[in-house]
């Protein structure tokens, strides 16, 4: 599958990563190599194989609908880059 600089730009945008023009060639080359390694698996016919999402053949456990957490806002917001009036601040959100 073709992977070029345009793809890198598209994917970097999806992943919210900034890749400078200087880096772009190197990154594209590296990713191409990795994709070549990955593409080895295309050699096997897996039409009749069911995907395995998880090594555990188990089902989801459920939690009782009980409140177990208490308000730790002030402590947890110590970790934040910027807060005001109990809110996390970010550059203006434009919808």
């Amino acid at each position: 599958m073709a992977f070029d600089k345009t793809e890198v730009e598209k994917v970097a945008q999806l992943a919210r990563l900034h890749i400078s023009d200087i880096e772009k060639d190197e990154v594209t080359g590296r990713i191409k190599d990795i994709l070549a390694l990955i593409d080895e698996m295309q050699s096997v016919d897996t039409d009749a194989v069911a995907p395995l999402a998880h090594p555990l053949d188990m089902t989801q456990r459920l939690r009782e609908d009980d409140v177990t957490e208490s308000n730790r806002r002030d402590e947890l917001q110590q970790l934040a880059p910027e807060v005001e009036a109990g809110l996390y601040l970010v550059p203006k959100v434009i919808e």
Binding site: E82, E84, P91, K92
Partner: peptide
Amino acid sequence: LHEDFHGMSGID
């Protein structure tokens, strides 16, 4: 919350 926090938005 889009009211102005000196040009920033607040997240709840």
